[in-house]
Amino acid sequence: MAGAGGPARLLELFGTMLATRRFEEVVYALFAEGHFSGHYHLYIGQEATGAAVIGHLSGRDTIFSTHRNHGHLLARGGDPAAALAEILGRAGGIGGGRLGTFHLADPAIGMPHTSALVGGAVPLAAGSAFGAKLLKTGGVSVGFFGDGAFEEGVVFETLNLAQLWRIPVLFVCENNTPGALTRAEGGSNTSYLPGGRVSPVPEALGIPTHVVDGADLEAVDALAADALARVRRDGGPVFVEALTIRWPGNQSQYPTMATGETDLAMAWDAGRIGNEHRGWFAADDPVLRAARRLLELGAADAAALQAMDAQVRARMAAARETALASPLPDPATALDHVLAGAAR
């Protein structure tokens, strides 16, 4: 499938993906070094979906995300230093330390609010689009959520309402493989959806629904272009199920860096891939896949990709230092912003 904007566009989206990957590696390191506490979730393995979909949005549009939101924020143009500071609970964070990793959002970039409750932001995304429709702003919304959201009733309610009220919203289910934790690993079956696919549900409601390989940057890019064009043209909901293979480090609470810091050279030098997690490196990692595709298309050579990576790493290292240098919030501000308007 051809990308929506050719190799140059793919290279740009790859830059977003790589920034997200390096950002998440910094988050992992900060946690491992004890700089923040509480459980957290990384977007590793899903970078192509967020980068490609969000790459088609304008400033009028909004996105809503989940507990796995870091990649969405960065793709939407969020500041990595302010995001890291927020994760660390610092005054210089996007929300002054009120959000943490669970709720990264920034209304200045069209990402008003992030819900860490499973399915919680799905109606908000529809609502934002509903507001835009009634206020005639021309904006649309994208709601990102995982396959687990289909275990929550409010998601069905929202899909039904989006059809009934003709709401211009793109639902993007990032299906990172349901039921991936076996019982032995502490998991259990959570859904009877056939094949672990959620798409039969929106299909049953008559919502235009598409399934895509969520780790295929070109495919998601092309589909997102079509899907968003349809949302804007028809003024109703469209549903995309983006399938990805679950990153081996993705656990229900604390990620592990199972696949190590990403070695970009694996994209062009298969000899660097060992036996452990071979399938991930060879076929599933969206960052390595996109790098290989860029090389194939001649959009960049290995040296250019390495140079890009060096720049991204330097940017994230600087963001890390900025975040760590940010002061802690003043405890006297803990009551600020409970209510809008005068303090009560």
């Binding site: 109606p123 609502g127 689009a129 509903f130 206020l135 904006g139 309610e157 309402l161």
Partner: peptide
């Protein structure tokens, strides 16, 4: 608009719409 029997979905949508300025 006329609502179905979907309190959670409706309040969620109204909340998102309110964030958008409605």
């Amino acid at each position: 608009v006329d609502p179905p029997i979907s309190e959670a979905g409706i309040v969620g949508i109204a909340t998102g719409a309110a964030m958008a300025g409605l």
